[in-house]
Nucleic acid binder design. Sequence first.
DNA 1: TTGACAAGTGGAGATGACCTCCATATTTTG
DNA 2: CAAAATATGGAGGTCATCTCCACTTGTCAA
Lengths: 225, 225
Amino acid sequence: MTADKPLRADARRNRDALIATAREVFDAGDFFDLRFDDFARLAGVGTGTLYRHFPTREALAEAVYHGEVAALCDRARRLQATLPAAEALATFLRGMVDHIDAHQGLARTLATLMAAGSGALAEGSRALEQAVTDLVAAAVKDGAVRDDVDAGAVMMALHGIGAAHDRPGWRAEADGVITLVLDGLRRSCSGDSQREHEQDSAGTALRQLVDQPAPLGRRHPGRMR
Amino acid sequence: MTADKPLRADARRNRDALIATAREVFDAGDFFDLRFDDFARLAGVGTGTLYRHFPTREALAEAVYHGEVAALCDRARRLQATLPAAEALATFLRGMVDHIDAHQGLARTLATLMAAGSGALAEGSRALEQAVTDLVAAAVKDGAVRDDVDAGAVMMALHGIGAAHDRPGWRAEADGVITLVLDGLRRSCSGDSQREHEQDSAGTALRQLVDQPAPLGRRHPGRMR
DNA sequence: TTGACAAGTGGAGATGACCTCCATATTTTG
DNA sequence: CAAAATATGGAGGTCATCTCCACTTGTCAA
C-alpha cells in the first residue's frame, strides 16, 4: 500500500521539516488559524514544495497522525503483553486520557478533521482501532468483558473525549466516561443489555437545493470567517 | 440575555428565510461545501443582508442549533414528567441516537463546529446539557444511578456519537455506547468504581514539542482545502 | 392618505488566501 | 565531469469572503 519510493536527500529533509513544523503547530492548536503559505515559510520551504509534499491540510495532518498512532499502538501491544487482559484495557484507556490531556491541540485538530469527514485520517485511525479491538477481544476471551458490544463503541467514546477538549471540567468528565465504559463493559452486571432497535427510517433526502450541479473538480479556495 | 429588539417585518422575513435555508443545507450535509454568497442567493437575499443577520457561519449554525436544542429539551422534560427517572434517562438517550441518525448532516456539522472550538455553540449546548444533567440528577435521587460520575461524561459520550457519524457500523456502535453508558451508570454493580488517578510522573510520552511561541500574526480570511 | 424618517437591502468591488506553473537549483547516475 | 533526473520556490492568477453605500421598503405621527 505505502509504496515507498526512494526520496531524494534534499526532498526528505524538507519533508521532515514540514512534518516537524506541523507537529509543533498542531500541539499549539493553531493548525487552522495559520495561513498555509506562512506555514511553508515557517518550515523554511517554498509554497510549491509544501504543496508538492502535502497537497492538502489533511495530508499533512495524516502524516503527523501516523506517528502519533504508531506510538499509541506500541503502547497497547506492550500493555497487552504484560498485563491481564482486563487490566491492560483499563490501563490503556486511562492512559489515552492522559495522552490527550498532554496534547490538547493535536487532539482538537484531529477531532475537527474527523468530524469534518476526512477520509485520509480514517485510514490512520484503523490501526488505533485495531489495537483497541484487540484489547477488548482479549478481555472478552478472558470472560472479564461482555461480548455483545462492539469495540467500535469504545472508539466512539474516545472520540467524544478528544473532541470535547474545551469543556471546563474536561479532565474529570473524561475520566468519568472511561469509568462508565469500563464498568459498562463488565460482564457481570448486564441487566437488560442491548435493546433491539427497529430503524426509524426517517426519510433523509432533502437534497437538490442548489440549481447548479456542484461544479466538481474545483475545490473551495476560501472559507468564511 | 437575548434582548429582543423589535425587528422590522421585512427583516424578520429575510431572517426566517435564511434560517430555513440553513436548516435544509445542514440536513443535506453541504454546509461547508456551499459558498456563502451562493447561500445568500439560495435564500433569496443579498450578500449584505446575509452578513448583517449572521456575520459568520457559526452564527448561522447557532440559530439552527437553537431550535434543535429547544425541541430536544422539550422532549427531555416530557419524558421526565411521565416516566420513572431511570427509564426517562434511558429513553432520552436512546432517542438521541434516533434523532442523530435522522439528522446526520446536522449532527456532523455541529460536531465539526464544536470540535473547532466554536464558542457560539457552547452557549446553545448549555440548555441541552442542563436537560441531561436534570435527567441524571433525578435518576441519582431515585438511587438508580451512581453519583460519582458527572453528567458531563454522558454529554461527552453523546458528542462522540454525533461526531463519528461516518463510521460504517455507526448505528450499532452508537447503541453500544449508550448501552455501556447506561450499564456503567447503574448503581448496583460498581466494582472498584472510579479509580484514583495519580499522574504518571515518570514522564512517559510527554515531549516538549514547541520551542517558539507562534511568532506569526494570525488571521483567516480564507481557508485551505 | 401622506410625508418624513428610520430601518433594511443587495450587489459591485476591494481584499487577500489558496494553489499552479516553470525557470532555476540540487542531487544522482553513467 | 556531464547529463539526466529530481526537486525547489515564489510570482502571480483565480476566486471566495466581506465591506460599503446609494437605494428601497416599512413605520408612524399628523
